[in-house]
Each structure stands twice: as C-alpha cells, then as structure tokens.
Amino acid sequence: MPDPLYRMARAEALRIVHLDSFIAVFHRDSGLTHLLAAPAPEIMATLGEAGLSRAALAARLAAEFELADLDDAALAERLDELVACGLVAAA
C-alpha cells in the first residue's frame, strides 16, 4: 500500500520492563513477549499511537536523535520487524 501510517500498539496493552540494553515487552493483546533493542523502542515511542508515515518518522528521528545512518531501507526493515511481531500496526 502506498505510504502507510505506522502506529504503536495501544499503550494500555503494553507491559514494559527495562533489562540492561534490551527492554522486555509483554503485549497483552497477543499474550506474547518480545525483547527490543535500539532502535526499536525509540521508533515505537516516536510513532506513538497517533501514527506516522515512514518519511515523517525518519524526519522525527533525525530531529530527536543523532542519527549516524539514516538509511531508508534499514528503517523500512526495522518497521517491518515491529509490524511482524504485532507491536506496530500499518494502515
């Protein structure tokens, strides 16, 4: 689909625990547990529940972080990973 909007799973459905360089996330809607390493948590937090296109997400990340490698293909992969595990929805 052309330029989908990505949004984070609803906040009430997430139980988050910080473990060293990973965060552990229990997703109540699926009953599944995921461990996230950078940049996944940052991407989720930036997307929020409102939803952003990939381009808008890239811009926000670049503004908020010192991005050494703004590679569109890499960002697409990171988003695909999050969509595949159910923590981000694409619409």
Binding site: R15, L19, D20, S21, F22, A24, F26, R28, G31, L32, T33, L35
Partner: peptide, 21 residues
C-alpha cells in the same frame, strides 16, 4: 546480563507463555 538470563530461562520454561502476564 539480565536480557540473556531472560531469554535462556524462557527456553528452560515449559509454561512461561501459558502463564501470560
């Protein structure tokens, strides 16, 4: 470190997923 312990223990648990949250 905790993250590695966490994953190893999920591999060593038969009912981790069944117990949910």
């Amino acid at each position: 470190p905790p993250s590695e312990v966490f994953v190893r223990l999920t591999q060593a648990s038969t009912n981790f997923v069944a117990l949910g949250e």
